[in-house]
Design a protein around this nucleic acid. Structure first.
Lengths: 157, 157
DNA sequence: CCAATATAGTTGTAATCACAACTAAATGCA
DNA sequence: TGCATTTAGTTGTGATTACAACTATATTGG
């Protein structure tokens, strides 16, 4: 007679399952601002993230961008092709390492960047209006801890 | 002389930007468990979410599944084609509405479901081990509030 | 110096996705 | 009843994605 003393219910309640809820939350939050990036600036989220990294780190390479935003380098490469074609980003081969190409926002790219930044900050602020200052800090801290902790989880063990 | 008294920095710090951080967090958390679903059960996240809904709500329609997991109905339709071909899910035309097809986990599907559920709960538990009980509740509550609140944001205004 | 290895970036490919058009059945209402 | 509208589900299509193979350059160790 198998003794079933499971700690868990036999049915998974998807809508209370943390990974699912985070995914839905993130999709909703990114989706709302993605619409604005697309309609007003003709940028995808990936496009914008690349430009955001170049705004923070002018001269970064495609590889560095890829690592920073955690997106496959092939995807970054193809997104960059579009941004280069639209003259939002410029690149030049690095003098001391000709494999590497240093990327910067072009003049046009910078102008768009300067338009997008306040839209992004405004959106973030409006999002957080459902929290008071203390809650914002707590939420921030919990997200960071969970992020750090998740990396250390190995499901094989 | 333009008076610049912006409330925001001129540069966006991507790694502190809430929508970005939630996206990275969610990707990491879903990515870890996705690997297990794929390697051990040959299921994508979408496949598994469909099965999870059918575990909770046997007899749901494709449309109901689509709404529940917030995935385009065309994507659900094609994912279902695979699940039906693998005999993990069964469907039958509803007697009183012949447009509708009632979906259920098949015997094989239920067996897999019963294997995946504890893996999922274990993973969730391991994720949350970086929080104490009070932190778990706070985090839960904040996520729910943010999710509710996000829906009400209209960036056009 | 040179062969082996590592790194930056691009491209091939199949799978997946979003969005719209489409079919078929059901419903609403004059 | 009958025609317009709504709903369930599928399919077409182009864009996006993941993953691996590939090219070109740089580095390392003998």
């Amino acid at each position: 007679m198998p003794k079933r003393s499971s700690k868990h219910p036999a049915v998974l309640t998807l809508e209370r399952f943390l990974p699912y809820r985070l995914s839905i939350l993130s999709n909703r939050i990114s989706g709302i601002v993605a619409e604005t990036y697309r309609d007003k600036f003709a940028l995808s989220i990936t496009d914008w993230r690349i430009m955001a990294v170049l705004g923070e780190y002018p001269g970064a390479s495609a590889d560095e961008v890829s690592i920073k935003i955690q997106i496959e380098k092939s995807i970054v490469s193809r997104a960059l092709q579009k941004l280069l074609a639209r003259h939002l980003v410029s690149r030049e081969v690095d003098a001391s390492d000709r494999r590497r190409q240093n990327l910067t926002l072009s003049k046009t790219g910078s102008e768009i960047y300067q338009q997008v930044v306040p839209v992004s900050y405004d959106y973030e602020e409006r999002l957080q209006q459902c929290f008071n200052q203390q809650e914002r800090e707590v939420f921030d801290g919990l997200i960071d801890r969970l992020y750090e902790h998740a990396e250390s989880i190995d499901l094989e063990s």
